[in-house]
């Protein structure tokens, strides 16, 4: 229970955590900027007359996937240690759902 505490030198710890947090903040701002940028591109792709729906729909879906990955890794901390199993289950579930929908779209007639 109480054996998780590893604060031998609180000063070092604080310094280290500060550095870590600053780094993370930087990542978050960068990815946030990128996400806004991607959203703008998505709006542009839909609004621009020159692109047909056959291009813009898959294109904005792709952008959406990128945004979900940003969200998971930079804002919901999936990049941190100890998130391997949630990641495994997330990808497992996504794979199962993908294969099912893929089967419906390609070989199964409803």
């Amino acid at each position: 229970m109480a054996n998780h505490t590893h604060v031998q030198n609180p000063k070092v710890d604080v310094q280290y955590r500060r550095k870590k947090n600053a780094e993370e903040m930087k990542h978050q701002i960068v990815s946030f900027t990128l996400m806004i940028f991607l959203t703008l591109i998505a709006f542009f792709a839909v609004g621009y007359e020159g692109f047909s729906a056959w291009f813009s729909v898959p294109f904005i879906l792709l952008l959406a996937v990128v945004q979900v990955i940003f969200q998971l890794y930079y804002f919901m901390h999936m990049s941190h240690k100890g998130h391997e199993l949630p990641a495994l289950f997330l990808y497992g579930g996504a794979l199962v759902a993908f294969v099912t929908i893929w089967a419906f779209l390609t070989i199964v007639w409803i």
């Binding site: 199962v96 294969v99 070989i107």
Partner: peptide, 15 residues
């Protein structure tokens, strides 16, 4: 186990 559900439906006419 998740990739085989339609084998219950071979006679439905999936092709």
């Amino acid at each position: 186990g998740f990739m085989v559900w339609a084998h219950h439906m071979f006679t439905v006419g999936m092709g």
